[in-house]
Amino acid sequence: MSAKDLYHEAIKSLAAADTGHGRLEAPDGRATLDNPLCGDRVEMEAQLAQGRVAALAHRVKGCLLCRAAASVIGKRAPGASAEEIERLTADLTDMLERQRPPPAGWEELSAFAPVHAHRSRYGCVLLPFKALLAALRAARS
């Protein structure tokens, strides 16, 4: 698996789209998570309505994979519950570690399948999801 497989057009397009980038005026919860290995940082803000993500915004200082993952969140997470995001994060981890299929309804995540061959990069993909979970926990508390 070469780096060219990793940095294919779908990943680059997701990162360039940067869907969900920005700030919310009145978030119910926010979280900032760092990747201790590289210093990447994801700031995630979320608003909840009836236990589901009503709106979110993120700001990412990170690699292409991290930005692409945040972009998928920006597109797909609105409408999801915290429990669904938690399950999704577990499924995504499985996809990366054990080459399982991408979580249903989040087909864009199949773009990250080549990351399986690069263990040191799993954290890059997962950081925005962990930040979203932390923001949702903050919102609920």
């Binding site: 070469s2 780096a3 060219k4 590289c38 210093g39 292409l64 690069h118 890059c124």
Partner: peptide, 25 residues
């Protein structure tokens, strides 16, 4: 270009570099 993306691509060509904060934030 992020340092990790760069080192990943260069690594493919056998060029071993380090990307990140090098424990010097």
């Amino acid at each position: 270009i992020h340092s990790h993306d760069l080192t990943q691509v260069l690594g493919d060509g056998g060029v071993c570099l380090r990307g990140g904060h090098h424990c010097a934030q």
